[in-house]
């Protein structure tokens, strides 16, 4: 049995479906990346897993963590699950910390929320946690306030708080988006190290395919609230299945070392990401898809083959082998700049 099993997770606000029957699982010690553009429902998925969706929103579907069914859990029990079994790290390390409390107090508070430790023991554990997330001079910095920390250091503190109770699952929602690249690399390494050392499952929510490639074991691509593709990371980057994934990879300029590549036009994805509530019928990507035809007027079923899954009428999974799918690296289809 997997650490986390999600079945038909749905989040709706009135008539707007933000997350649409999403199913996936995460194994212990595994990193699953959920990738997509803004408005695709990836952050809402993170909130829905921990039942933190704000009131007008309604959550449907089943979430099982460690064999515990979270679906029908009363709010009081759910509160114990958050932090205790699931840790969450958000995008903005500034707003995740309380500016008037010292960092030591905040980490110690997270420790005591889930264990019967006394103040002194909790403080010692807080120092341990700060050390675990590689904050230099952890003991001395316990009494500093958050504003004395840089953005990267604040995110480390936020991570320390998230793992204070040894959760079995860590959800990181765009944890490095607000940070500089060199700091981003540090934080991603830290998350990877903690996952490995503590044996946690890690759900990494991001818009950056580069981050996905270098951190994740498995990738789930979301578009308009739905899962359009799921693959092991090497497979996804070797041969993306869904036209959206392929387009997304082609749209991002790629950093190349050595001889810079000749100037080429970037592959555009025409049109806009549909808003929840105005999602086109049938395949949600069809209006922007070059391969779409009349057959795309119905919602494509999710086809599975081994560990890969794709929701596209134009891709036939059982018959699929990597060579038949046009690779995004095939530059012949790119239009030259001049």
């Amino acid at each position: 049995m997997s650490l986390l099993e999600v079945e038909d997770l749905t989040v709706r606000f009135g008539d707007a479906v933000v997350v649409d029957r999403l199913s996936f699982s995460v194994e212990a010690g595994e990193t699953l990346a959920i990738v997509g553009e803004s408005g695709c429902g990836k952050s809402m998925t993170a909130l829905a897993l921990t039942r933190l969706v704000a009131p007008p929103g309604r959550i449907g579907g089943r979430v099982r963590l460690d064999g515990l069914d979270l679906t029908g859990l009363p709010e009081a029990r759910m509160r114990a699950v958050r932090g205790d079994r699931v840790g969450i790290v958000f995008q903005d390390p500034m707003s995740a910390l309380n500016p008037v409390l010292t960092v030591g107090e905040q980490v110690a508070e997270a420790v005591r929320a889930h264990s019967p430790l006394g103040a002194r023991a909790a403080r010692a554990r807080a120092a341990e946690l700060l050390d675990l997330v590689h904050i230099p001079d952890a003991h001395r910095r316990l009494d500093d306030h958050p504003h004395r920390f840089s953005g990267g250091m604040r995110q480390r503190v936020a991570i320390a708080i998230a793992i204070a109770a040894n959760p079995s699952l860590l959800i990181a929602d765009e944890p490095t988006t607000a940070l500089d690249v060199t700091i981003q690399a540090q934080i991603l390494c830290l998350l990877d190290e903690l996952r490995r050392d503590l044996g946690m499952g890690l759900i990494l929510i991001t818009h950056d395919l580069g981050v996905v490639a270098e951190t994740a074991d498995r990738v789930l691509v979301m578009y308009a609230g739905r899962k359009v593709e799921e693959q092991d990371t090497p497979g996804l980057f070797a041969a993306p299945l869904h036209p959206y994934t392929r387009r997304l990879m082609g749209a991002k300029p790629r950093l190349t070392l050595g001889e810079p590549p000749p100037r080429q036009r970037l592959q555009e994805i025409p049109g806009l990401v549909p808003l929840p509530g105005a999602i086109p019928p049938g395949c949600a990507f069809a209006p922007r898809c070059a391969d779409a035809d009349a057959g795309c007027a119905t919602v494509p079923p999710l086809q599975r083959h081994g560990r890969a899954a794709v929701a596209c009428h134009k891709v036939e999974l059982p018959a699929w082998t990597p060579r038949q799918v046009p690779r995004w690296t095939d530059r012949s289809q790119w239009r030259a700049a001049e």
């Binding site: 981003q184 490639a213 270098e214 951190t215 990879m249």
Partner: peptide, 15 residues
């Protein structure tokens, strides 16, 4: 430090 779309770079300690 730039994350690249290359899964082979996974686990490189760039810090």
């Amino acid at each position: 430090a730039v994350p690249r779309m290359n899964p082979e770079r996974r686990g490189l300690n760039r810090t």
